[in-house]
Structures are given as C-alpha cells and as structure tokens.
Write a protein that binds this DNA or RNA. Structure first.
Length: 933
RNA sequence: GGGCUCGUAGAUCAGCGGUAGAUCACUCCCUUGGCAUGGGAGAGGCCCCGGGUUCAAAUCCCGGCGAGUCCA
C-alpha cells in the first residue's frame, strides 16, 4: 500500500523487535511489538478500550499533562518555547487560524530562510479548527479548540553545494529517534507499550509531503509523527495519494502532533473528552441549566456517550443517523435518547466554544466583519444561541472568563469587555432582525401566501437572521415557509454569481534582471539625516514605463535612497555624474538590490553623487516615528489588544489602522494625542539595534511584529521609549525631532478596525492651520469670535428652520387669498365647474398651494409660472371628469418639457418660458377638448 | 479582500419619480372617583451629505460618510 514503504524501515522498529503487519480489516500497514496482534487498532477496526479503563498509570489534568509532556522533552534535549497566537494571519497570509504547531514555522523556517526559535524544540500550541464545528459535543471527541503538543527538529542536508544557504545546517534527529521519543514517553506514563501500534500513513499537504506515522493506543489516535521531506515536483519520482508527484527537499523536518486533550482523556478514561479536560465548567453548566438525571438516565447517557465516541462520524447527517443506531443498541426509542443527550451535547459544545473564544480574544483577535474577527464573531454568536437554547443564563463573558482564567490570560478584563460588547451587538441584530421577520410574516399572512425562499435568503445574507428563526416567527404568525436542505449552498450560490476579472498584475521589478547583481549597501540606517552620498553605477536597466516613455533602473554599489517598504514611500532626489544629472522618481528593492527609477541614464561604471530630497525624507521620518508613538499611545489608552492592522506614511499626513472593538471617542482621541505629544516633549532617543532573532523574540515576544514578520536571522528593532518593533523604516534620532503630533480624524474602515489619521512636524502645524482657517472663515462670515461659532450656528440653524415654516404658512395664506380674490385669472365654464386659468409667477410649492386653495373653493385650477423655466400645476375637485395629468402633459409639451401625475393633481413644465403665455391662452381649448373626450 | 442590505418625526418603520405618511412616545382637551383604557386636537422632518439625470428626485445613477450582514 504505502508508496514510501522503505521509508518506514526504521532502525528503532528493528532494534525493538517490532513486526510490520497489514490490517486485514482496512489494509493499512502498521508496526507492533505484539506478534499476536492482527488489527491495526484504529477505529473502525477496533473499539475504544480506555473508557472507564484509563491507559496511563496516573490521572492527569489538562495542565498537568501539558507540563508532563513539555518537561519530558526538555529533559530529552528540547528547548521549550512559548506558543504562538491562534491568529496565524499575523505572520502568514495564506491562513487565518493556527491549526497545527508546524504553522508556527511556515513558511520562513520550513523553507530554511529563517532559523527556528530553538532546535530541537517542544511546544504546546493552541489551535482552532472550525471545520467540524457542527460535531463538537456530539461525538464525544471533537473539539474546536485544542492544543497540539509537539516536538520539532529542523534538519538540512549537508551533502549539497551550499549548506550555509539555509538558516540551519545538519541533522538534529530524524525518524528513528522521533518514534523512540514517542515510545519512551508512552512508557514513562505507564502505558502498555505492547498495545501501541504505529500505522504507516503518508502525509500530504500544502505542497509538501513525507512519510508519517499514526500512533494508536487502546483505539485512540494519540499522535501523528510527520516527516516532512518532500515537495511537489512535476518531475518527482514519488506519486502520492493526492495524485501529484513529489521529490525530496534539502531540508527535512520532524513535525509531530500530540493532542493534549486526547492524552488527558486517555489518562482519565471518562466517557467523553470534555469531562476530562474541563470538568468544573461542565458541572457548572449542568447546574446552571438545571440538568438533572436519575441514576438510570445517567447510566443510559454514559453508555450512549461511550458508543457515540466509537463511531466513525464525519458530518452532522451521520451523527443523526448514528443516533438511531445507538438508540437501537441501547434499546430505547431514538426520540427519548435525543431528549436525554441533546442538552448535554449542547453543554459540551458551549464549554468548547468558550475555550475557543478565550484563545481567540486572549490572543488579541477583535470581533469584526472580516477575517479572524468574523470567525470569532460567528463562534460567539453560536455559543450565545446554544446557551439560550439549553437554558444557561450565566452571562457569556463570565463563561468565557472561566476558560480564560484556566488558560492564564492576563487581559481578562478586556476579554470580558469584548464579549459583553459583542453580546449586546448580537442582541440588537436579533431584535432588528426579529422585527423585520415579524413584518414580513404579517405581510405574507395577510396575502395568505408562504414566505418565499428568496426573502429568507435575503434575511440571512444581509441581516444575519438564521433560517430557523424565520421558521419560528412564521409559525407564530401562521405563515408557511420552506427551508430547503441546501439552504447554505444556495447562499453560497448567490455569492458566486459574478467572478471578478483578475487583478492587473503589479509591475514588480524584474527579479531575473537583478539576480546577478550584488546587494546594495544601505547607508540610510547609519546616518538617516544625511542626504548626499557618492556611489558607483553598477548597472542601468532600460525599460518602458507603460506610457511609452523610456525610464531607467539604476543600480548603485551603495545608496542613501530609502526604497518603498513597510508603509513608507520611497525617497526621491537626483543622481549626478560628471556631465549628467538625472531625477530619481521612485526607489524599489528586489532581492536586496535597490533600484533607482530615473528619467535618464547616468552611465554604467560612472562615479556619481546622489542627493536625497531632504525635506521629504525628514517629513517621512517624522511621520514614521510618530506612527510608532501613536500605536503605543493607543495601546495605553484603549487596551493591550490594540494591534496594527496596517499603516501608510506620507509627507502631509499618515494613517495607522488599529484593531479595536468600539468606535474611538473624542475623549480617547484627545488622550492619545496628549500621550503621544508627551513622548515627543520627553525627547527620547530613538534606538535601533540588530539583535539575533531568537534573543529579540525571547525578550519582547510576538508583539514585535506589528507590521508582519520579516525574514532573516537578524532583526532590526526600533525602540521608542517603551515601544519596541521590528521595523525597516527610517526614523528621527530623538522624539523631539518630530516637533508635534496632531490627530486629524478617525474612521472605522471595518468593524473592529479603526483608522487614525495624523500629521507630524511641519505637516501637523499646516493641518492645524487649515482647520483654524476654516473656523476663522466661518467666524468671519458670522461676524463673531471663533468660540461663539457653534452657538451662533446653532441659533442660525434654528432660525432658518423657523423661517422655512413661516414661509410655508405665508404661502398657504397667500394661496387662499389668491383663490378667493378672483382677480387676474381667466375663468371658464366647464361642464358645470369653473376652471380658473391663471399665471402666478411663483415656485412649485406656491403653485401647489394655490391650486389646492382653488380646489377647496370647488374650482378646477390651471396655473402656470414663468419663474424658473415654465411650470404648471393642474388640480381638479372630486367628481370633475378632467384628467389633470393629461392637461399638464399637453401644456408642458408646448414649453418643450413634460409632466404628469395622478388624475386630480398634476405637475409639469419645460424650459421654454417664452411659450408660457401661448400655452396658457391655449389652455381653455385644451380643457374643453380633454373634458369632452 | 470581495459581495449584499439599510440611513425618512424622539423610537420603529411605510412610501421608491408627481402635494412627505403610519404606529408608539410627546403636549393639550374630553371620557373615568382613580388607574388601565377610550375619543379628539396639536407639535415634531436639511427624507445622512455632495454631485448627476429629469419639466419634476426622499424615490433613479455616481461619489462620500455612517450602520448592519454574508463569504474567503
């Protein structure tokens, strides 16, 4: 079976007297010490044998098991490292959440570009897998949140051309040692190692592959030992189970995964994993929901849990089908079983979801409508629904806090605050949505029709209302609604209608062209305030800028020009040779080579003098340092969770996007501004250093990487007061050099992401002056002092509204006077009614009022105005057979326009005011013609 | 990152090219011994902002601001 059969012939297996066997049930190959064993031992080929029969000598709590594992590997030469955040998108853009310990080291460590934090190392990495969210609680073993305990070793082949091209060299240990460690760990915990099986199960994922071994004990998969050593390669000689071909890489990595929860469960032998890992929370929730079982019921539930854990279940449909099987095995009706077990399953799910939330929020994820924040919001809402359904009335923030406390998060107050805010938002959404559904249900109830599916889809898509909520409310109103099984697929279909055209590719510098060029020496870090330098032109690459203009990319041996990066725009300036000076309009970096985009060719091999635009550079440095200061100040004011979500520096203003769960108030803006300027006036030295990556991470932790993780063995750190960040930009030497920092505005660019726009130095003064100019202009117009502007404007606004009302009143009075005055208008008799035809040069409002007044008197009205073009209003009293719309339409055509309206009141007009008199003269004929028709 | 929905009286929402509306809340009057309630009258709108189309825009189009929601 195994395509990598020879890869599993481990020394350790042979020394220890293992035998390789083929499972007659599933066909898998496995290694065992027990010569009599036939089956591989993994369900469905075997049952759980540890429930009520723990597999280790002692019982372990979650914390004890984690410690036992980590210290075992520490004692065996591994360094213990701190876990990474569960928000994997903080260091990689291909995934959102951390789903395995190896995620911590992808892509830069696994590719060999960056050294691991330790080698070999051990870690217990919190992970979140949302794939089988629906199964949590039901199967007894699925959890959304878990910790993957692991030991990793990063090896690189030495028999290659440049072994030092990788950030680690040589072999730490490989397959045989890995299995030996696992075996020894099991043995040290008192497991019956005769009963352990090692199943061959090649692993493929994310473009990499390698042999792997599943470790099975008493029916439970306790660990997976992956030997990542291959990469996808069209010419590779190994075809693996995904149908692709693979070949061996220069690096080969031990990637193991030991499920902390499963090991804890194994040590306790409880009916479900949940009861082993957070027993207090389960019993709290049971109490709170008032869940009570008789001894007989408890026994039944226990037996059911035991059975359900053994079933090979992959999705919810299977769970429901399996429930029938279990009920049959227990000889009780399916409904009775469901009634007993479902509340308990819900409680398991709540506990797990709260732990998930504790990890997410504790690691600084802020609920949002995008990215990981959205996932957190989904989990939170789902948890709230589950809690409501099963009757748990403890506040959700308290439940999450129970888990956060266990996980020893320090930011528990913030976590609770976020949960409370989110629950409140959800409550509002539900309330809004509920009302909407009520209206809809009423509407369709009146018509006696079922609510169409399209409406339900719309409710879910744009208002977040679950289809079962619609069903519930519809039932209360006696309206039918059909929710198809493929509801969510239909939602997805709505979204896949329009496939957007591919983005135009960025015009990245030609990597191939610079591949042979040496790295440019960067002078701007040593003397960020110097603007001129001397250099040798190493190469000039001629290109077309896309508009038909010829431009040049100039490569120098050294440069003072800062290439665009880290949200800081490129420097501009000029490069002068003996007889030519060229303008530098853009600077980019590719593979360590700095490319100066110029409008001329300075000549390859020439000695040149470069001059950077000093004012621009100075402004950019001020803004860059200010960005760090504002980020720090925002964290002080708003909380530890505040993290950079993006930044862009400029010469006039800059912006910093930060994660925060509420709108930032004016008061908070002021405090941030005060704090930031305090740091400026303290005139602190801005320090840069290039420490070893591992030392920097040890000392400052993961928050160094506000703007992403740079590759390499060394990091450039920028210290501004207490704030430390990995940063490649240019900074002022002392904070006092910034001069001043002014926050200009803040906007919410996404839910959970606030954008702070600010200016530093001269730009701050200019921005303040602009604001003041606007205020002074307004004050000048009002002829009051700036301080009086708000009060005066408010008074004027009120007066303006009052006058509007007064004018309305007067127009109506004028209209009724005009209607009774019987002057000026031509009156004609029309089938017993008097029609008044009159020119009133007034606006549309007044025409309407006059027409209304005439109708009040029992007359038909045809009014024309020449005030703005030509406009007409025609109104007729009830019971008069004239179509006002038709009359207006006819008259309006005579002035080059159109018009219409209901039969009793119509308006219209056209641009040709000169034709107004003629039109009014024709009006009697028009009226007679149309009244006769 | 992408999609969709919504901004109208203090609140909740109708109206979706042709005279800005309803319900609740508010003020006053009446009904009642008082309360619940019932009847009547009234006040309360830059129809989010800025452009455009049109004889005419709350309504259609574009942009902005604000809010909500689904997906990766």
């Amino acid at each position: 079976m195994s395509d990598l059969e020879e890869e599993y012939q481990l020394e350790y297996f042979h020394e220890e007297g293992f035998e390789r066997k083929e499972c007659p049930s599933c066909g898998a190959h496995f290694w065992t010490r027990d010569p009599d064993r036939e089956l591989c031992g993994e369900p469905p080929c075997a049952d759980y044998e540890f429930i009520d029969n723990p597999g280790f000598e002692a019982e372990f709590s979650l914390e004890e098991m984690r410690e036992a594992f980590l210290s075992f590997f520490e004692e065996h030469g591994h360094e213990r490292i701190d876990p990474y955040p569960v928000a994997a998108n903080r260091w990689r853009d291909d995934v959102l959440l951390t789903q395995a310990s190896i995620y911590d080291f992808q892509p830069l460590v696994t590719s060999g570009e960056t050294p691991p934090p330790a080698n070999p190392l051990t870690v217990s990495q919190p992970c979140i897998r949302m794939q089988d969210i629906d199964n949590v609680g039901k199967t007894g073993r699925h959890t959304m949140a878990f910790e993957m305990m692991a030991h990793h070793a990063f090896n690189a082949r030495e028999d290659i051309e440049n072994p030092d091209q990788y950030a680690y060299e040589g072999e730490v240990y490989w397959k045989s040692e890995t299995v030996a460690y696992c075996d020894e760990l099991l043995d040290s915990l008192g497991a019956d190692i005769e009963a352990v099986t090692y199943i061959e199960d090649p692993w493929v994922g994310g473009g990499n592959a390698g042999p792997a071994i599943e470790v099975i004990y008493r029916g439970l998969e306790l660990a997976t030992l992956v030997f990542m050593c291959m990469e996808q390669d069209p010419d590779g000689e190994y075809e693996l189970k995904d149908g692709n071909t693979y070949s061996f890489m220069d690096t080969y990595i031990v990637d193991t995964g030991y499920g902390l929860e499963r090991w804890t469960w194994m040590s306790q032998g409880t009916a479900t994993v949940y009861e082993a890992i957070y027993p207090e929370m389960i019993s709290f929730l049971k109490d709170n929901a008032g869940l009570e079982y008789t001894d007989e019921e408890a026994e039944l539930v226990h037996r059911a849990a035991r059975l359900s854990g053994q079933l090979d279940i992959d999705d919810v449909d299977d769970v429901e089908a399996a429930r029938g099987d279990i009920a049959a095995a227990l000889e009780v009706p399916t409904d009775r079983l469901r009634e007993l077990v479902e509340p308990l399953e819900t409680i398991y799910a709540i506990a797990d979801h709260c732990r998930t939330l504790a990890y997410m929020l504790g690691d600084g994820i802020v609920p949002s409508n995008v990215s990981t924040g959205y996932l957190a919001r989904m989990v939170l809402r789902r948890t709230k629904r589950l809690a409501d359904r099963v009757g748990v009335d403890a506040p959700l923030d308290e439940l999450v806090d129970m888990q956060a406390e266990r996980l020893e998060y320090r930011n528990r107050d913030t976590i609770r605050d976020i949960v409370r805010t989110e629950v409140e938002k959800y409550r509002e959404t539900l309330e809004r949505g509920g009302r909407q559904v009520e209206r809809l249900a009423d509407e369709y109830a009146d018509r006696g029709e079922p609510i169409p599916l399209e409406e339900v889809l719309e409710l879910y898509d744009s208002r977040g209302i679950q289809p079962d909520t619609v069903e519930e409310i519809a039932a209360e109103h006696g309206v039918n609604v059909e929710i198809p099984d493929d509801f969510y697929a239909r939602v997805a279909a709505r979204h896949s209608d329009d496939d957007d055209a591919g983005e135009t590719a960025e015009t990245a510098p030609d990597e191939a062209a610079v591949a042979d060029l040496p790295e440019t020496e960067k002078l701007y870090y040593d003397e960020p305030e110097r603007t001129d330098f001397e250099a040798v032109v190493l190469d000039v690459i001629e290109r077309d800028d896309g508009d038909g203009e010829t431009v040049y990319d100039v490569v120098l041996d050294q440069t003072m020009f800062y290439p665009e990066g880290g949200g800081q725009p490129a420097d501009t300036g000029s490069i002068s040779g003996e007889d030519v000076t060229v303008e530098v309009t853009d600077v980019q970096e590719a593979d360590g080579t700095v490319l100066h985009r110029t409008d001329g060719d300075p000549g390859k091999g020439e000695f040149v003098r470069g001059t950077v635009d000093g004012t621009r550079r100075r402004r950019l440095m001020q803004h860059h340092t200010a960005t760090h200061i504002i980020g720090h100040a925002a964290r002080e004011v708003l909380g530890e969770h505040v993290r950079q979500a993006g930044a862009q520096k400029g010469t006039e203003s800059s912006r910093l996007d930060i994660r925060h769960y509420e709108r930032i108030s004016r008061e908070e803006v002021k405090r941030i501004e005060r704090l930031a300027n305090g740091i400026v006036t303290d005139n602190l030295t801005v320090k840069q250093e290039w420490p070893d990556r591992r030392e920097a991470e040890d000392e400052h932790g993961f928050d160094l990487y506000q703007g992403g993780i740079p590759p390499g063995e060394k990091l450039r750190l920028i210290h501004v007061g207490e704030d430390v960040q990995a940063c490649a930009g240019t900074h002022v030497l002392r904070t006092g050099d910034i001069g001043t920092i002014k926050l200009l505005s803040n906007e919410r660019i996404q839910d959970g992401v606030e954008r702070l726009v600010f200016a530093a130095g001269d730009a701050a003064i200019e921005a303040t002056q602009r604001t003041e100019d606007a205020l002074y202009d307004a004050a000048g117009t009002l002829d009051v002092s700036p301080q009086e502007v708000p009060g005066t404007v408010e008074r004027f606004f009120e007066e303006w509204k009052d006058r509007g009302k007064r004018i309305e009143e007067l127009k109506e009075q004028l209209a009724s006077v005009r209607a009774q005055g019987e002057g000026g208008g031509e009156e004609i008799d029309l089938a017993g009614t008097t029609a008044v035809i009159q020119r009133v040069d007034a606006d549309m409002d007044e025409l309407r009022a006059t027409a209304n007044a005439l109708v009040e008197e029992g007359n038909a009205a045809v009014l024309g105005s020449g005030l703005d073009g030509a406009t007409f209003v025609v109104a007729v009293p009830d019971g008069v057979e004239i179509n006002a719309g038709a009359v207006v339409s006819d008259l309006a055509e005579r002035v080059g326009g159109g018009g219409g309206g209901p039969p009793d009141f119509a308006q219209g007009g056209g641009p040709d005011a000169d034709a107004l008199e003629d039109a009014l003269e024709a009006a009697p004929d028009v009226l007679r013609r149309l009244s006769e028709a």
